[in-house]
Simulated scan of single mutants.
Amino acid sequence: MQNWRHTSNKMKNLVKACLAVGTLCFGATQVTLAAEKAAFVYIGPTGDHGWTYSHDQGRLKAEQALAGKFTTSHIENVPETADAERVFRNLAQQGNKVVFGTSFGYMNQMEKVSRQFPNTIFMHATGYKKGKNLGTYDVRTYEGAYLLGVVAGGKTTKNTLGVVGSFPIPEVVRNINAFTLGAQSVNPRIKTKVIWVNSWFNPGKERDAALALISQGADVLMQNTDSPAVVQAAAQKGVYAFGWDSDMSKFGANAQLAASVIHWEKIYVPLLNQVASKTWKPTSIWWGVPQGAINIENFGPAVPAPLKTKALAVRDAIQKGQKHPFDGPIYNQAGSVVIPQGKRLSDDVLSKMNFYVKGVEGALPK
């Protein structure tokens, strides 16, 4: 075989070009190298316009950015039961190099299957258990919730906000508290009412909860559920709401004040690159505004320019590390100091949050 030093420049360039696009060249023939496979498991439908939709948009953008390195697939509407364990096992058996589980309730099933398939990498969204081939990742959605709160505090005329909550887990409690604190940073008189629907995606229950909150005097609504039903209900009743996880303005252009938008590709692209370069390690990722993983976007026509400018200024302060949604002083419902002036809640406390801040009404379900 001809020595590389004596290979013609034309042939060298051909070989380099082939390698650059993931092919091997034999004479005039190019043989494409097989891309690795990555699979995504979703709790809801990709058309929910919320959590699952945002993950799927991130998947598609990552696949486009990593063309030639990875192909991706997804399975939607997988419940957080033994069905999830079966799905994870099947995907590992199908040769997927990475399997992403995108809901908190997949944690135990994913941990079990990861031990059975040590050569497959498993990544669990919003969880905390790790292993040799099991990592975790999340987005600091509470940063987006705080920014929405800033806007809500500037728009409410009744000083009463409403939140449609899914499940009373730390992730959701953080978002309710951050939303309230963001609003109180503009208007200290703010109170927040919460109705739990005990579901991530149930448009009927979400709508009923939104209407109930409106009947209780809430004139600005936030949700930690996945459908656009809250925005639709707000539009019908002439009050305001926010897009959650994605832009929902097409369901109520005049009702949506802004949207807290997740950009999962900011996590998926570097993660998959690490897998491709064999540098992946089972670390925990928790990214937010500074990494571009979440942002306040799609301001509606009802937001005056000064209020938009204020919200973006707070966003920029978070981005620079000058502001944290849980900077002290922070008080719980009983009025006791949780974090004093000059301090901020640690990630450890945030990850286990099980209390309401002052201003959130009602008891937190056990």
Rank of each mutant, 00 (worst) to 15 (best):
W200A: 01
L307H: 05
G321A: 09
Q216I: 05
T160A: 07
K323R: 14
W200Q: 02
Y331T: 05
V172G: 00
K132L: 08
G58I: 02
V194Q: 00
Q184E: 14
A234T: 04
L181G: 03
E361C: 08
A34K: 12
E143H: 08
K158A: 10
K130D: 01
V303D: 00
K16E: 11
L364A: 11
N96H: 15
L221T: 00
I195V: 15
A259W: 00
Y356E: 03
P329R: 09
D245Q: 13
L60Y: 07
P203K: 09
A334C: 11
L364H: 12
A363C: 05
V150C: 02
F242Q: 00
V172M: 02
M222D: 08
M107T: 13
V261G: 10
P340F: 13
N354D: 15
R344V: 05
R86D: 11
N133F: 06
I214C: 07
V360M: 13
T32C: 02
I176T: 07
D247A: 08
T71N: 13
A259V: 03
H49L: 07
K37V: 02
N198C: 08
G135I: 05
V163W: 15
S227I: 03
G162V: 02
M11G: 02
D347T: 11
D348Q: 14
T72M: 10
N187A: 09
V151H: 02
V231G: 05
G154K: 02
D347Q: 14
A259C: 08
L211F: 09
Y53K: 03
I294G: 06
P365D: 14
D327F: 07
Q216H: 12
Q232N: 08
K281M: 12
A302I: 04
L60V: 09
T32H: 07
K61N: 11
Q291D: 13
D247R: 01
N198H: 14
A311P: 03
I330W: 11
S114V: 05
A38R: 00
N198R: 12
V87A: 06
I296P: 00
A293I: 05
I294Y: 04
